[in-house]
Simulated assay, not measured.
Amino acid sequence: MLFTQLFALGVALLAPAAAADDQTPYLTWMADTFIQDGVTPNYGYQVATLYLGFEKAYEISNDEKYLDWYKGQIDDHVVLENGTIKNWNYTRYVLDEYRIANNYLYLYDKTGLEKYKSAAKIVRNMINSTPRSPSGGFWHQIFFRNQMWLDGLFMAQPFYAKWTHRYDADNQTAWNDILLQYDLIETHARNKTSGLIPHGWADGQATWADPVTGVSPHVWVRALGWYFMSLVEVLQVFPTSHPGYEKLMSYFVSLAEALKKTRDVDSGTWWQVMEDPYPTYEENFIEASGSAMFTYGWFKGIALGYLPKEAYLETAKDAYTSIVKNFISEAEDNRLVLHGTVDECNLIGKVDLAYYFSRPIRDNHKNGVGPFMLASFEWETWAKDA
């Protein structure tokens, strides 16, 4: 198809980066690229996702430049000295804007500065009044009444769980609430045959929702990637003594298995629209961000003992090297480029196949780069030699 030809031509014009098995330090190379290119600070989830990669670049290198750059992005531009968030709207209730509170907690741990904890607490207090569906699910945004998008689980639940673990561990109501968000998605949206989960579920009516099930029509690769990553984050802090812990683990493990079955054999990565029969469609394409998210989730799940090494490690390693082969190249000025990340896909209006197939493809999109850096950290610290 035309898109595939143009994409291949664009990649061919750039020098290929060294292969993953050459142990090229992609993590710090990508961090250096973004420092060189510059990033506009804000409290959106795209930059929050990129900052996760900088946390790992600092961890693997112990080079203060990565922490200093990261802290400089937040100071004055996002978190003010009095502990408030610049231009924060206390009645907006957009889950996408909750994600960066994880980054505030990270900087609080690294610096001890109370302003970061205060900023995180603002977001935690927003959770108490976030609008809910009749079943208790968080609205994805105040603009999308009674709609739960898989993206939203990543945006809100890991922070909700981390805050509760750190500062309110005996709050069973909070733990039950976190579990409820996953239970609703699993009960209403998980396909029992494929094990995959479509982009969203409406606890009521929505233009894109099936009138009977409330489920959106297609499985979008990055939405499922956000969901997979959210589970591996929440499981690390969710109390093992809680009866919901085993449910969350089963959700993660069963999805990990479904991802093995849906990975494209030829490319080693995953399709933009994942459910059968659409991977065979000419208009479909392999996508970088979701592929990086799934690979990171596998690596992290293996490292934490959630997934058996013998069943997943070789597949995860092959997925990582496939991402490098399919999507990574070196550009001018020693810049590293991740190709193949699809632009934002929203549940607004008509979200048919043509919509998902026609969305633009971006180079070095933060939603792809952050997860690739996370996967690279796992690769570079243990996986490549395991």
Score class of each variant (00 low, 15 high):
residue 330 E to Y: 13
residue 167 Y to I: 10
residue 207 T to W: 07
residue 106 Y to Q: 02
residue 298 W to R: 09
residue 113 L to I: 15
residue 296 Y to C: 04
residue 156 A to E: 02
residue 269 T to R: 02
residue 151 D to M: 08
residue 215 V to P: 04
residue 378 E to K: 04
residue 25 P to S: 10
residue 268 G to D: 03
residue 238 F to A: 06
residue 364 N to D: 06
residue 82 N to Y: 05
residue 198 P to T: 10
residue 342 V to Y: 00
residue 115 K to G: 03
residue 358 S to T: 13
residue 158 P to T: 10
residue 119 A to G: 01
residue 163 W to H: 06
residue 152 G to P: 02
residue 122 I to P: 00
residue 229 M to G: 06
residue 350 K to Y: 04
residue 194 S to Q: 06
residue 34 F to N: 01
residue 237 V to R: 01
residue 134 P to N: 12
residue 356 Y to G: 05
residue 295 T to L: 01
residue 8 A to M: 11
residue 345 C to T: 15
residue 108 Y to P: 07
residue 294 F to I: 08
residue 184 L to V: 12
residue 31 A to G: 01
residue 196 L to W: 02
residue 133 S to A: 14
residue 104 Y to K: 02
residue 46 Q to D: 15
residue 44 G to S: 04
residue 78 V to D: 00
residue 100 I to G: 00
residue 311 A to K: 12
residue 111 T to Y: 07
residue 287 E to P: 00
residue 51 Y to R: 04
residue 374 L to S: 08
residue 205 Q to C: 08
residue 331 A to Q: 10
residue 115 K to F: 06
residue 334 N to C: 06
residue 214 G to P: 01
residue 185 I to V: 14
residue 380 E to Y: 05
residue 237 V to C: 05
residue 52 L to E: 10
residue 352 D to A: 14
residue 107 L to R: 00
residue 301 G to E: 00
residue 352 D to G: 13
residue 289 S to C: 06
residue 294 F to C: 01
residue 250 S to E: 05
residue 221 V to S: 00
residue 337 V to T: 00
residue 178 I to F: 03
residue 3 F to L: 12
residue 382 W to F: 04
residue 73 Q to H: 14
residue 9 L to E: 09
residue 266 D to H: 02
residue 50 L to T: 03
residue 91 T to H: 10
residue 120 A to C: 07
residue 75 D to E: 11
residue 385 D to Y: 11
residue 334 N to G: 09
residue 370 G to R: 01
residue 184 L to I: 14
residue 33 T to V: 04
residue 23 Q to S: 13
residue 194 S to A: 11
residue 199 H to Q: 13
residue 368 G to M: 08
residue 57 A to Y: 08
residue 61 S to P: 05
residue 115 K to A: 06
residue 347 L to K: 13
residue 361 I to G: 03
residue 208 W to H: 08
residue 324 V to M: 02
residue 170 D to M: 13
residue 372 F to N: 05
residue 345 C to E: 03
residue 93 Y to E: 07
residue 232 V to T: 11
residue 191 N to A: 12
residue 210 D to L: 11
residue 326 N to C: 09
residue 84 T to M: 08
residue 212 V to T: 15
residue 383 A to L: 06
residue 313 L to E: 03
residue 277 P to H: 10
residue 78 V to Q: 01
residue 108 Y to W: 10
residue 37 D to E: 13
residue 159 F to Q: 02
residue 307 L to F: 06
residue 266 D to N: 14
residue 7 F to S: 07
residue 149 W to G: 05
residue 163 W to F: 14
residue 95 L to E: 04
